[in-house]
């Protein structure tokens, strides 16, 4: 079985801030990490590899320096690593990104594609299902448990807002993974040594030949008009006094909010 895992290198968003005066991002010293959900997707692929001997490829679309994310994935146990990088892909929104990744995946070959449920910089969760649509294969989003997996079909739990669904699907298939599924392993020493020597295969648009209007900015229906800081709470109040007084004030507030 060939498993392709899509990963993304993202800034650690918990440290990204906006300067409310200039409306610009402040990210001095913000480290780049593998999107945390993608690590769960990679772990899922590696566990299947441990059980069945599948071949695991990792794929990322990004700038040349995203190869460090791929090396980390190889250190964890991925067999092949592909970096999809070209100026033609610049400015891709989720539609164009899904198209570009799908085109590359078609070239790499696949039985199973795994993605994290979303990337923590954009939080859209749109690229995974989008790839599946471009490849005309089914997908299951928010997979929290894998019951069975064979060459022909899978049976998994899909997290819903009101519980979970047990879902079956034929392969080839794309799944997006939530953190409940597993705990990602750490790279082994052997893996780290392997990663150092590992060849990162670069894919540019001359390899996959996507039309100019189907990737990058020209292929993106949406665009960012502007960015701004979220509103801050202006009416901050501290409730003082001994606990019984504090609770009395709190009860008044809850009453005014029609909670009681």
């Amino acid at each position: 079985m060939n498993i392709t895992v899509c990963i993304k290198q993202v800034p650690d968003t918990s440290e990204v801030r906006i300067n409310p005066e200039t409306n610009t991002l402040i990210r001095d010293g913000v480290p780049s990490i593998i999107n945390p959900y993608d690590l769960h997707a990679l772990e899922a692929a590696l566990s299947i590899k441990d059980a069945t001997g599948a071949n695991v490829s990792v794929l990322t679309m990004g700038p040349p320096q995203a190869d460090s994310a791929l090396k980390e994935a190889v250190a964890m146990g991925a067999d092949d690593a592909y970096l999809l990088t070209d100026r033609a892909f610049a400015g891709s929104d989720t539609w164009a990104t899904a198209n570009t990744l799908a085109t590359a995946i078609r070239k790499i070959g696949f039985d199973l594609i795994l993605c994290g449920k979303q990337a923590i910089d954009g939080d859209t969760a749109q690229v995974g299902p989008g790839i599946a649509e471009f490849l005309s294969i089914p997908h299951i989003a928010y997979v929290s448990k894998i019951d069975t997996i064979t060459e022909e079909c899978v049976r998994v739990h899909r997290l819903m807002d009101d519980g979970y669904d047990v879902v079956e699907s034929s392969t080839p298939l794309l799944m997006t993974i939530v953190k409940e599924l597993n705990s990602p392993r750490l790279p082994s020493l052997k893996g780290k040594i392997r990663a150092k020597k590992a060849e990162i295969k670069k894919i540019s648009n001359s390899d996959i030949e996507i039309k100019e209007n189907d990737t990058g900015l020209p292929g993106s229906p949406t665009q960012v008009k502007n960015i701004f800081a979220p509103e801050s709470k202006k009416d901050r109040k501290t409730i003082e006094g001994p606990p019984p007084d504090q609770v009395s004030q709190l009860v008044d507030i809850l009453r005014s909010l029609k909670c009681i």
Partner: peptide, 20 residues
């Protein structure tokens, strides 16, 4: 969970812009 799962497919099929 439902909207975020299948709307991306609809948008891809129709070549429409989708904002999450």
């Amino acid at each position: 969970a439902i909207g975020r799962s299948f709307l991306p497919r609809v948008a891809v099929r129709l070549r429409a812009g989708l904002t999450a």
